[in-house]
Amino acid sequence: MNIIVLVKQVPDTETKVRITADKHNIETNDIKWIINPYDEFAIEEGLKTKERLKEGSVTVVTVGPDRTVEALRTAVAMGADNAVHVKTDGTLDTYLVSRAIAEVCKKENAQIIFTGKQAIDDDQAATFGYVAELLQYPSASVIVKCDISLNKTQATLEQEGDEGAKNIIETSLPAVIAVNKGINTPRYASLPGIMKAKKKEIKTYTLQDLGLGSETSKTLDSDYQLPPERAAGKKIAGDAATQVKELVRLLREEAKVI
């Protein structure tokens, strides 16, 4: 089974965001780059699926500048068999990234595609849906359990619904499955894995190679801004009972939120 995992390289969650002078992006100097945390669960699910089925290969795919190859090497060190890099300069929007990924998935004859439910940088949570639609595959997101039938034609999924509910979904394969935290515990890279990853040959495409040379992004970003600083408010004095009474009074009379 050809298992594809879509990964994105993102700034570490502890990153303090700064904005460039032209306000068209964030400062990327001195950023610690990591694999999008949700995509780590997707890599693990891909590896586990291959282990359960006792056959197949796991191919990780990313789109971005040269630095993003690091994310692919980390995934190979965790156990992925192959890596594909769509090398781009500048910023691509979700639409164009998804077009590129869909082309790669066709070339790799994807039979199941895993990815994280969203990337923690742009928070669009949209690539999974675009890729699925472009390939005419079914899709399901916020998945916390995934069972692939042994004949590899069907998957039973558990989806986190609203208000704490769980939806059980049955889908035919191929499909795009976007996973949530909690589906598994991602493994660490092994030492032999890290050695293997260093030497791993990475398949590289440009947008031209994928027949997308004349395509452009459909959205343009500008005017990046930091949120207004919240001024520190008042600390309420007194013993616990006094503090609580005063808090409830303030919430009612001053803030008018209860």
């Binding site: 639409y95 928070d123 669009q124 949570a125 949209a126 999974f128 849906g129 639609e133 459909k218 959205t219």
Partner: peptide, 19 residues
């Protein structure tokens, strides 16, 4: 909304802005 909108945008071959 977050689930179907990317697929709808893909059908229209257009971009998306979420949330």
């Amino acid at each position: 909304g977050k689930d179907f909108l990317p697929r709808l945008a893909a059908k229209f071959k257009t971009g998306i802005a979420v949330d």
